[in-house]
Design a protein around this nucleic acid. Structure first.
Lengths: 339, 339
DNA sequence: TTGAAAGCGCTACCAG
DNA sequence: CTGGTAGCGCTTTCAA
């Protein structure tokens, strides 16, 4: 493979001129530029990103940090981010922080980031103090989706509003015996999403003068399998809810499965609602509150690219984008059965 | 942030010595090494990957190429690959080749790979002639999962065997009216998986003296939603199959949903089987043929790392690893209904 | 065992 | 508009 020197030689100009011509800078005559471009084409020249980075200080790479990859929400987010970044000639370096335990995760380290990425997009990972200091120290532009980080730009939905919408839908149908699936222990490694949704659920219940007994606030690691397992005892019990609000669609799938296995009809005997509008929700006929995950990814990428491309003139400060959600009524919710 | 020069100054040695000491090379006295390590620690020194790459020619980065990110299979694969690579201090640069259309995709280009990655792992993407030449030209080590590429190492399951297992299970239950979901038009942009599974299905049927009418070989883009839509008419028809073999679990989900919407019981009126053992298959009680996706990712990463770390002594040639699959009987299959 | 110095391939500044 | 050249921060001979 050829280097810039080869191109310069073939084109009969200096490497400086080649560099300028190929990057589309001005101060290059059209004739020279044409000559250089022709030479580059002939030699199949592609600049070494490694050398460019060392010389310019920029890598063209963005670190994308996720707590898991295999959940629909994150896979969808990453895909959107990757496309938006590639459209602007940037690449994605992937950091999957998934740890052994549900509430543990890997830490961001200096050797992951230093001189390796121009910026970081953090997808719903709560970043602790030391990690924040690291990002600050490396003076990396950061954008977060979901859980916010310090005063860096953030894109998210209003979790409380989304949950209020879901809960209200169920209550409007006439349900009073409502259970909730998706509480998690309040460890710092968890994003704020679970707590916010749980609180909004309870607040909405209370605003109608209702109350969900603690036994019906079901803890869950936010997988369908766990939701199935955790909900089963609830439905087997003599007194059972007529509706279950799940904090995510994946958990709602588990709840629907639990109902079916308990011999209950959805929505005849039990209404189920989730949040997300997962790719399978339409297929499984789940009523949900839709969030536009791809749009969140796109916006995060755009914000980061703006601060990367603008370069010098840094954003004054915090930028927040809160996207609206939308109730999608399908076949998993109905009025409660008659006594 | 400090450079190797800073460390050299503080430790009172040359940069060459720092380089050796920190990389654990020999020919460094224990005392010197200790001094250098202390200095590096004090300065929070982390070597610039960019400068290391330029000097050494290695980047420590592996390109991971996928056709989609949002499908369970690929997300799971990537996650496994990422973990295995990071355990050996390598990073993942993600290339999502998903295009606008189902059967179109982005191409691998020189500017994606050249001097940017040390090797490439291709996840079930058929690589065309020009791309193969590119990889050859850049003399990059390549490992593929699923669809093989030229004579590079490959990790996969035996698709034909897996499908034979699935089909045989259904036939052993006594079904004779069996439909298939998941044929795709034989465009070159498709991996070989769909064709292989479809052929194995038909071969297995034939070996029992059965035949699936063309109308029952249902084309599908391998999503649950499409499977739902494509299967519905089949089930609404007067003469309908008593079992459906889906080429993947995601499509099987769609088939089960179609059955439910048609008022058919699974497995009472219709048996459904898939291939994969998707994360939701247990929850949805789908009988399937399990493949160990994570293990495939891990092995691919190991093979690539071996050729990266060994460096000089290149593998003699083609390495193939074919993993076994296993029938997982759940509640979606049963003998056909009595006439 | 250690140091000096020549690159790696490109950018960016300063002359011309 | 173009060329010369000094780095960017590290690795890697080759001497000492």
């Amino acid at each position: 493979m050829s280097t810039i020197t080869d191109v310069a030689r073939v084109a009969g100009v200096s490497v400086a001129t080649v560099s300028r011509a190929l990057r589309g800078l001005d101060r290059v005559s059209p004739a020279t530029r044409a000559k250089v471009e022709q030479a580059a084409r002939d030699l199949r020249y592609v600049a070494s990103p490694t050398a460019m980075s060392l010389a310019s200080g920029r890598t063209g790479v963005v670190g994308v940090v996720v707590p898991f990859l295999t959940r629909w929400f994150f896979a969808t987010l990453i895909s959107a981010v990757e496309k938006a970044l590639r459209a602007q000639d940037h690449h994605v370096l992937l950091f999957d922080l998934e740890g052994e335990r549900f509430d543990a995760r890997l830490r961001l380290t200096q050797s992951m980031l230093w001189k390796r990425v121009d910026g970081v997009i953090v997808l719903n990972v709560p970043v602790d103090q030391r990690e924040r200091e690291l990002l600050e120290l490396l003076s990396l532009p950061v954008v977060s989706v979901g859980t916010g980080i310090g005063s860096w730009p953030n894109v998210r939905i209003d979790d409380a509003a989304a949950m209020a919408t879901a809960t209200t839908h169920v209550l409007d149908l006439g349900h009073t015996e409502v259970a909730y699936v998706g509480t998690v222990s309040p460890r710092s490694a968890h994003p704020r999403t679970p707590a916010q949704r749980a609180e909004a659920f309870q607040a909405t219940m209370q605003s109608r003068g209702l109350r969900c007994p603690p036994r019906w606030m079901v803890p869950c690691d936010w997988t369908a399998a766990a939701a199935l397992g955790e909900t089963a005892p609830l439905l087997a019990h003599k007194r059972r809810p007529t509706a279950v609000v799940a904090a995510s669609d994946e958990m709602a799938f588990g709840v629907m499965a639990a109902a079916r296995r308990a011999g209950l009809e959805v929505p005849g005997d039990l209404s189920v609602i989730g949040i997300d509008d997962h790719a399978l929700s339409g297929v499984l006929d789940l009523t949900t509150v839709r969030q536009d995950v791809e749009e969140q990814g796109r916006r995060a990428a755009q914000i980061l690219l703006a601060s990367l491309l603008d370069g010098a003139r840094a954003q004054p400060c915090r930028e927040e984008q809160v996207l609206d959600c939308e109730l999608v009524v399908r076949g998993s919710t109905a009025p409660p059965p008659q006594r």
